[in-house]
């Protein structure tokens, strides 16, 4: 298993970091270019899934253990809802980002959008990886001859 597919393994090692970097770009540049939390989350998950496909489920679960994935899934929703609750605590409406910088509302909007998009990205990453683990965990090793 671990001594063939040399090209795939080398290319994957090169690509995983690049895909993650692209995910962060789509995540944090989403205000200025196409993209946002949903897309970035899926791209980030794709990096882990690619690693899992090539190096095996166990290898990727060492990097990102399932219990952590399950926590991350919930963390994103909490970040998003937390922003709403925080704006309520500052005396504004739920998810009214003007609360974060009343003197300069568009700055508040920028900060709010950045944080909630991060929450979206975190949850989508977690859910996609968790679904992949759930499917792949049923039958972790498949020999090439099976196909």
């Amino acid at each position: 298993m671990h001594y063939h597919h040399l090209i795939l393994r080398v290319i994957t090692k090169l690509l995983v970091g690049t895909i993650m970097l692209f995910a962060f770009y789509v995540q944090f540049h989403g205000d200025f270019s196409p993209g946002g939390g949903f897309q970035a989350g899926v791209i980030m998950a794709a990096a882990f899934i690619l690693y899992g496909i090539v190096f095996g489920l166990y290898a990727v679960q060492v990097v990102f253990p399932p219990w952590l994935v399950h926590k991350v899934m919930a963390l994103g929703v909490l970040i998003y809802a937390g922003v709403g609750v925080y704006s309520m605590m500052l005396g504004y409406a739920f998810l009214d980002y003007n609360a974060f910088d009343p003197g300069h509302p568009s700055h508040g909007q920028h900060n709010g959008i950045l944080v909630i998009e991060f929450g979206v990205g975190v949850t989508v990453t977690g859910v996609m990886i968790a679904i992949y683990y759930a499917f792949a965990g049923r039958f972790p090793q498949i020999s090439d001859e099976d196909w």
Partner: peptide
């Protein structure tokens, strides 16, 4: 909102509750 990508400003701010 002062965000060039209007899709983001609609999804994340005007319809933030939807996106939640």
């Amino acid at each position: 909102i002062d965000v060039p990508n209007v899709v983001t400003s609609i999804l994340a701010s005007y319809r933030g509750f939807d996106t939640l």
